[in-house]
Amino acid sequence: MSKLNFAIRRLFQMVATLWVIATLLFVMFRAMPGDPTTYFLSEGMPPEARERLIAQYGLDEPTHVQYIEFLRSLVTLELGISFHSGRDVIDIIWLYLPNTLVLMFSAIIFAYVIGIPLGVLAAWKRGEGTEKGAVILALVQRSFPEFWVGLVVLGIFGAWLDVIPMSGMTSGDHRPESFLAMITSLDFIWHLLAPAAVFGFYLMGLPLLLMRNNMLEVLAEDFVDVCRAKGLSERKVMFKHAARNALLPIVTAAAIAIGYAVGGAILVETVFSWPGLGREMVRAVLRRDYPVAQGTFMLLATTVVFMNFVADLIYSWLDPRVTYE
């Protein structure tokens, strides 16, 4: 089977997965105990308004009609209107998604740029204290709740030492002209520093451990001995030849990690009052703003599924050993 065929088959699989997730979401919102409409309608709404919304959302239609309408709305991105603010859900997503993406990519870059060399180092110094130290560091990074680390960082560097801002993306008197102007301003980067570092600290454990494990496997292969026999320095063997071969799984892992990190940023966004999509989803869930909750959740799930798909493609394109039967 050709790579193209594989990609097409994977694409269909992705669409099918998304369809199942969407269906689950649809069922979940309607299968909850009690009157399904109570989950869709905001609390304390006067009866007339409630009836109007029921009609607007087609909740008085038969279930299969609602279901088809629901799928149509997802495909056409007409995700409805927030109960809470009256904004289009898609507008809300556009408002908050870029903020999350900036935070997430900064954190991922931070995590991988530091994590990968540490992983190589750990494999190189196998059996020594360095290895143990690196492995323990990685475990520690994933063991402390990231929101707790965030709060401790805020407490020490924000409240006590006063070297980082306490919350938000920009200072009050900064009024950027555009998104691009904002994210390139020093003020923004100053605000980004702590949340990206905390999130990156949490994400770093994965590339570190993965790199170490892959390196150990690669080092057992023959070509490494060939390199050594050629008289190449150990540093060169490690960082140039072994690391290059161990990197592939990291690339795919990074793609998958990106998918999950968009939703995983929730806690960091909450601690640092970062106006991101995850935080918005949580707030929508808490105040039962279901069009927003549904829309943002679907977006987070789509990101995950899509990045898994991308990871598979990268893997199939880059790894000469993968064959398709």
């Binding site: 199942v20 997730i21 689950l24 995983g264 989803m281 987070l300």
Partner: peptide, 17 residues
């Protein structure tokens, strides 16, 4: 499908409901 669900958002949604 389970792999398509982001962990924390899904748990939050489930627990809230």
């Amino acid at each position: 499908v389970a792999y398509g669900l982001p962990l924390l958002p899904s748990v939050i949604l489930l627990v809230a409901m």
